[in-house]
Design a protein around this nucleic acid. Structure first.
Lengths: 295, 295
DNA sequence: ATGATTCATAAGTACCCCTTATGGATCATA
DNA sequence: TATGATCCATAAGGGGTACTTATGAATCAT
């Protein structure tokens, strides 16, 4: 069963509702001639007249009258579906983010975003894989990398610096950390991390003898940070992620020297959607937050 | 609230149902590229992706999944509506006919048509006004006129002949009708009918002195025929309409001479619908009936 | 490694659909 | 009765959408 042309059905629906071709044309934003044309088309397809042409008015035929309510109902369903879709699509912001960033920076600040955008619901998808906007449902992504990506708008959030950190208790256990070499007395969380060699090289120590279990690979800087906070060892972390803990003294950054990786963290989203309101709102909020923090 | 392009919605519905652009394209009779194009169009209109493009398959996104059932439902409604419409339109034959023809010829024979076309229901609309297929709901019309009409297929049914008729009792009341002049002794139903002058002229009598009340204008040959049958007077009638009564002797046609009007009775229907099955069926049956009657 | 399958994209074209313009018919008003 | 307003039908013509074709990329199977 093939439906008649949908454009014709739509015109018929409006014309039946108004009982007037001219008014239907106005509603649909087209000319009266176009309505007349489409109705005629539909009548030929259906095989019988749908309207009786009375002087200065049109009236549904029996068949037209039977058809009209069904078409109206169908279009109501479509209108409702697409209306709520638009709302829900506009009302839910899905952020695909690196777990560390989510836990240390984003989640604590989401309250502020919600305050500014009470109509927006936020959904987080944190995962290690790089956000692929074609294969995953996400509005914006937070990822790390060395350069920008084609097809995406990329806002550089911060550089992935790193420096050793430890808990005050652990530092006290050896009478405080005065020189980089002091760190070698303490257990190192994840000694396999290449950042260690880079950092020690910066302070003049090549091939440091790191104490610690090579199997300690928590795999995620956020988890490593929790271990450091618990005093389980020294970690090499990105200061940006642990600003509150550093300020409150729960964590110590013994040296100002930071290593600089070529990686940076980025906020990204498809170029085609750069003007979607919820995406603009999130971008503006996020860049604002970073601006305040650095200012 | 403006709906996205309906063509795109239709494609989306099929694609969602199949979960496969290629299959949807087959169902819709178009190429896979066209499906891809329409889905992309719809996604841009909606403002968010509707499918996730996974390797060798597509999967509905959350928004797509919410949209899909509604679209399917809407199209089901439309499909059902137009399917039953087609059936019902095909199943009811509406005949707009002159009352006389309906009463004297058509109705007595409709049983035969029903036997041949058990699936067709017949609806009669008898009225004096000429059938206007634009302003009235009718599939075929029976009308009288002098020539064919533009835009309509016209089958000439018979010429509107006329000749005096009366009941046997009335004829006996004056010892039988032997010559046309005998008729002048009897009351004439509707002496104002112009057919009288024409007929008497044919038999050599100019300006006949007709007895009868000028106000007797029944207006319809069928009603006049009933009055003649009741013996109320002489009528000038079309033999075609009263064949059964003539054969059974309820009515007498005293003279073979018939007047011939330029009017004829026609079966007509819009040219554009000449091949609609129910119309073909009726035309074939009707012409067949007339052929038998004259043969 | 090769072919099959699936979707995306670019280019080009056909034709549908709409607009413009006009006419016919009816109704209202002077 | 004439004149204007309203409403729909129709013809002509152009623009643009929505196809098709062709090709590419990615994945999966053999």
């Amino acid at each position: 069963m093939n439906l008649p042309p949908l454009a014709a059905i739509r015109v018929f629906e409006a014309a039946a509702r108004h009982g007037n071709f001219t008014k239907a044309a106005e509603e649909l934003g087209m000319t009266q001639a176009a309505v007349s044309y489409q109705i005629k088309l539909l009548e030929e397809r259906v095989g019988s007249p749908l309207f009786l042409r009375l002087p200065r008015q049109v009236v549904l035929t029996e068949i037209g009258a039977r058809l009209a309510p069904a078409t109206t109902e169908a279009f109501e369903i479509l209108r409702a579906a697409f209306a709520t879709t638009r709302e829900s699509a506009d009302g839910i912001l899905t952020i695909a983010t690196i777990p560390t960033f989510a836990a240390t920076w984003l989640v604590p600040r989401l309250g502020s975003f919600q305050m500014e955008n009470p109509a927006l619901a936020v959904r987080l998808k944190s995962g290690r894989e790089m956000t692929d906007f074609v294969r995953q449902e996400a509005d914006v992504g937070i990822r790390s990398g060395t350069k920008e990506w084609a097809g995406l708008v990329c806002h550089k959030l911060f550089q992935a610096n790193f420096t050793p950190m430890l808990s005050p208790a652990l530092a006290a256990s050896i009478g405080g950390v005065k020189t980089p070499a002091d760190l070698l007395k303490l257990p190192i969380l994840d000694p396999s991390d290449p950042w260690w060699n880079i950092w020690f090289s910066l302070v003049g120590i090549e091939k440091p003898a790191l104490r610690g279990d090579l199997r300690n690979r928590l795999g995620d800087q956020h988890l490593e940070g929790r271990a450091v906070l618990a005093g389980q060892g020294v970690g090499i972390l990105t200061p940006f992620f642990f600003q509150p803990e550093l300020q409150q003294g729960q964590l110590i950054q013994p040296f100002d020297i930071v290593g600089s990786s070529e990686h940076a963290y980025w906020l990204v989203y498809p170029e085609a959607r750069r003007n979607v309101p919820k995406i603009r709102a999130f971008r503006d909020w996020m860049l604002g937050q970073l601006g305040e923090a650095t200012a």
